[in-house]
Structures are given as structure tokens and as C-alpha cells.
Design a protein around this nucleic acid. Sequence first.
DNA 1: TCGATTGGATATAACGATATACATTGACCG
DNA 2: CGGTCAATGTATATCGTTATATCCAATCGA
Lengths: 355, 355
Amino acid sequence: MADVAKEAGVSIGIASRVLGGYGSFSEKSRASVVAAAEKVNYRANGVARALRLRRTNTIGVLISQINSYHWTTFVQGVEESAKRAGYCVLLSNTGDDAAREMEYLRDMRERGVDGIIASPLDCNLRAFRQAADTGFPMVTVNVQIGSEKAAVVMTDEKRAGADAVEYLTALGHRRIGLIAGDLELESGRQRLSSYRVGLEEADIEFDEDLVAYGNYRQDEAYQGARRLISLRQPPTAMLVCNESMTGAVLRCLRDHGVGIPGDISLVGFDDPDWAGFYSPAITTLREERYYMGRLACDALLSAIEQSHPAQDFTLVTLRTRLVVRQSCATPRDTVALTLKLPAFTVYEDPDQTTD
Amino acid sequence: MADVAKEAGVSIGIASRVLGGYGSFSEKSRASVVAAAEKVNYRANGVARALRLRRTNTIGVLISQINSYHWTTFVQGVEESAKRAGYCVLLSNTGDDAAREMEYLRDMRERGVDGIIASPLDCNLRAFRQAADTGFPMVTVNVQIGSEKAAVVMTDEKRAGADAVEYLTALGHRRIGLIAGDLELESGRQRLSSYRVGLEEADIEFDEDLVAYGNYRQDEAYQGARRLISLRQPPTAMLVCNESMTGAVLRCLRDHGVGIPGDISLVGFDDPDWAGFYSPAITTLREERYYMGRLACDALLSAIEQSHPAQDFTLVTLRTRLVVRQSCATPRDTVALTLKLPAFTVYEDPDQTTD
DNA sequence: TCGATTGGATATAACGATATACATTGACCG
DNA sequence: CGGTCAATGTATATCGTTATATCCAATCGA
């Protein structure tokens, strides 16, 4: 910048004004500064600017698994919103490791990110709440940390499993198995409880035997599915609590020659691309992850720039949608009491090529 | 930091030394500084440090699609290596848009990232080469930008398609279709040419009719596959040049009732999780994306820290592996000339649960 | 013609950590 | 007892921007 000023024959301050586009300056100096900047191929030093402005135009995103469909789609949404507002995304992968999560929270704050989007683990809630309470911009995803200052973007999973159960009971299912997620995570608990809500609404008694705790792990989900299909009276339908476990369950069913939906019906949480082109296409509970990312980022930016009152975003709730495809059918050995289905959206795959 | 020094009753310099762990200081002042830092809950300002040290401990990663299996796996590898070395990852998604790519390159340099990992588009090669030539640490992935100073991590795709063709011809296939990628991208060209290499080696004449240009797009891949299976003499096997097109092709085959591997054999590029649990499991050409990410990051860090000579990393080449699963069989209407298969690795899925 | 006003340029103080040059103290040795 | 050296602490310049306080000159009105 000093070079530019010297080259242009003006003071360093006036050069900064021209390039920063603030204050007043004459047309003559504007022209010479612009020319000089061009000539010496000037590029601003963002670090110095950040130091001065106490603002890095960077947001931190803490996610648990970067290579899972729902998180990458989420991050894509965050990034899109961030980019439009001139922000960059600093990404960290915690792998659901509490110590790492704390470390990254600390590291990101040291690096001066302007705000953070995260889904903190239970055991770290306090630290995140404290950061938010002291005014550090924060948005949490599917977790409430108990600070009024942190905005929350949630999917309403209190209904999600219930929607699936409702659909399955409408098809005539009464024995509906569950491959549950990790109960140490908020989403794991919510998905389980929403399944129970669905059972209650259908007057079906909760049967512990029909629940396998897969902990969001593929190997445990595989074993769990195997146990369920080996029961003397196996379930006629299964609900699987996330994408990767659904994969494991599909593998298990294939390995054991159990047909879908002939032998068993299947509904999965999350809606990765492959659910649409699997044979048969898998009925899923879709969360609008991309949109959630956009919202989370917008909420964070408004907290950072205080352009909108934070209240506008305090709690945004999105509903999951049941995307009906071909993986569910009337149970084989049960007379369907009714075929009058409730009005479920049959979701049109955006990428489905019409014939 | 001034607060800490005052609290500890020492000068600001000595506090910095203690917390930075350099220079010399007495045990007494160390203790008081540490105590004071604890008391005022001191956290360093990374921006100021970065300004002074002219180093941000941040690397920029420019990728084309964050929500595709192979890039997220790659990023996971990068992040793992970066984290271990105390670096953070600034992530940007170009969506294969040339203007965006340039903008992000510029933006990242302004932000002072210590180095960049990218796979620049053809039209931006010059800008990236220039940056590398002027000493800016850079690692490119599957692209050579023609600068000696930039390290390159490549998968050897000159053989990839040929491996697939070799395998398919060994099964007896002679009419092997190709759903090609975007020929404006290096990987698209390489994958096409490796397919031709395979044909030549098997003494099969290249037949333009059997090639559909899917441009890495799902809709075009779907249409392309439809054309191929509608040919008077359709191919008995197909090779699909990336993951998302493989999905589209599977959808197409399912929609038209074409069985795999009964009616047609299929080999896909990239090896996403779902390839393993699809029915039938899909035979793929696997690139070690996670490992590539690790390598790319290590190369970049060594260029940044000059701990190793850059030459060690100038060009790292990894081979693709053919992961043989269940999507290929002897063609229905052809007598297999030989069943003596070459020694292909039958890849053990790491997540496959043994029964 | 002189003060007031204004537009434009300059010099400089932050921002916060770091590293260096310098000052002080104490110890040890001649 | 003075001088040298080591050990420790202090003061300060630096990184590159930005923004403010100041300053100067020119224009205008009275």
C-alpha cells in the first residue's frame, strides 16, 4: 500500500481511502491511485485489515462427519450463503470426539472467526453456551444450548419417525422395527422418541425386542438388522435412523436374501442421492439440509452484522418430509385393513430424468 | 496480553515470551504469568500473530463439488493432515465455474492462506501457474499446471479405464459402452483415453456409437445410457466415468427393466459407500481419495515449512484399483472365450460386516 | 479584505503479538 | 573492589490497514 501511494505520488492515507472507497478524495488522485495499484499489482493484506477492523469475514463450521451426505449438503448451503455475503468458511471435522470439538472451538476463536455454526455434543454444551452468552455469534444445528443469544436451526424430529410409522401402519404394518441411532446425541434420542410417538398414535405397544441400537455405526446396524430379521416373529417393516446405517441394513438384507419390499418394508432417515436410484428406490425422511445450511448461515451473519435482530432467528424449525418411493408395501402376511392412505407427498426427485 | 502482563506484574514482553515459549525468563515470572493468564482467561489473538509472523497456519482448498463422495473423502484426508500440523482448512466450492475459481484464488491469497490445494480448470491454469512460480505454495490434484514449484498429486488414470476394459474382455465382452465425462476437464479426457487404450490392447475397434458423452451430468448420462441400451446391437457392458453418472445410469437401467449383471455388466468410476451395498454390489475403479488428501496436504505443508525439499513431492502418482464386486458377468449371448481371469484384487470392503 | 466554511491531503495512532536492541541486576573472578 | 559476563527484564519497532485528528488552501459571503 505504501508502494502504491509512493507510485501514485499521494499519501498512504489517501491511497487507502481510494481503494477502500470511503472518505473524500479528488478525481485526479483517484485515477493515479488506481493506476498505481494496477501497476504494482497491489493486493490488500486481509490479515492486517482483519486486525484493524476486528473482523475476519470468516465463519467457522464445526461438523461431525464431513463425508456424510447430510453434512456436506448442509455445508454447501452454508458456503453458498457465506460466499454471497463475502465470507469464507473455515471447516473442521470433529468426528463426534468431545475433546476435538473443544479444541476446535478454542482454535477457531483464537483465529478470530466472526461466528460459529456447530452442533455441540452434550458434554460440551456449557462451553458453547458460555461463548454465546458472552456475545460471541453462534448458531447451533439441531441442538439447543440454552442461551438466548444463540440462534438455533432445527428440524422438527418430534414428528419425523411418527410420520414414517403413520405411513407404515396405513399400509397395514403393526410390527415395525427400529434401528436406532446414538442415544448420546440429541438427534438419536429425538428420532427414537418420534418413533414411539408414532406407535402410540397407532395404538401399538412399544416392543423393546423390535429396537436395535445401531449407534449410528454401520457394523452395529448390520448386526441389529440381522437380529431383527432372525426373530421368531420378525418385523414387517423397518425404520433406520440415518443414512450410513441404512446402507448397512441394505447390505444385511441383501446378504440374507430378504427382499424389499416383498419380505420387508424399509424407511430410512436422510435422503442421499442413492436412495433415489437404488433398486427399489428407498422411501426416506428427507431433511432439507441445504436449506438448513443457508438458514443457519443467514442467521449467523445477521447476528454478526446485527442487521436483523437476533430474535428473528432464535429458533427456526423445519419439518422433515416423507419421500415416498418403492421400498414399502403392504405386509405379506397381513390383511391391510385400509388402503386409504393419508395424503403423503410423493416427492419428485429433482434429478429424475423424465422419460 | 497487556492485561496479563499487568496482572502478573511483569512487562508485556516477558508475558509474550512465557506464553509463546521462547526466549528466557525466570521461573518466578513464568508462574505468575501463567496464573495471570488463567485468571483473566487470556486467549491469543491469532490475527495479530498472523500479521506479525506473516503466516496464518491456514491452507485453502478449492474443490469443485463439496457434496460428492470423492471430494469429501479427499477433504477429510486434507483436514486430518492439516489438523495434525496445527493448520486449519479454508474451504471453497467452485462448482466448476471458472470465474468463481479465479475469484476464490484471489480471495484466499488476500486472506493470507499459507498455501492452496486445487484442481484448476484449464482456462485458469495460467493464473495458478503464475502464483506457483512466484513462490506461493501450491499443490494441484489430478492437474499439472506446468510449474516446477507446484507439487502434483495424481491418480494414474491412463490405466484406469484400461483395467476395466481388460477385466470385461476377460469375461468375454467385446461391445463395451462408455458414458464419458466432461471433456473440458482433465479427468474427463484421461478417462476416455484410458478406455481407448484398453480397447486397443484387446484389439477391439473403437466404436463412436458406443460412447455417450454424459459431461458428468446426471440427466445427460441418463439419456446417454438410454441411447446405448436402445441400440440395435446394444453393448453387453458399460463403463461409467464418475459416481453421479453411475447413479443416473443405474436409474435408467432400472427404469427400463435392464438387469445387472444379467442383461448388462457395469463398472463405475469412483467408489462411494453405496457401491458396496447396492444390489448387486457395483464393481468400481477406486481411487484412494482419502490418502490423496493426506498426501496433498503433506506436500503442501512441506512446501510451506520447507522442511522437505519440494522435489520429494513434485509428482506423486497413485493407481486406481479395480474393486471387483457383483455387477459384471459373462455376457449372455457370447461364449466366453476364456474364464482365466487376470489377477484382479477382489477388494475387501472395510465396512463389510462378516457374518 | 477578512473570517468562515469546506474539500482535499497528510500524518499518525491504533489493532495485538513478537522479536530485538537495550538496560539492569547479580554473580563470579581476577 | 572493580570489571566482565550471564541472566533476566523492559521498551519499542514492526507487521499492513484503517480512521481520526489535523492541516492547508481555496472559495465564498459579509
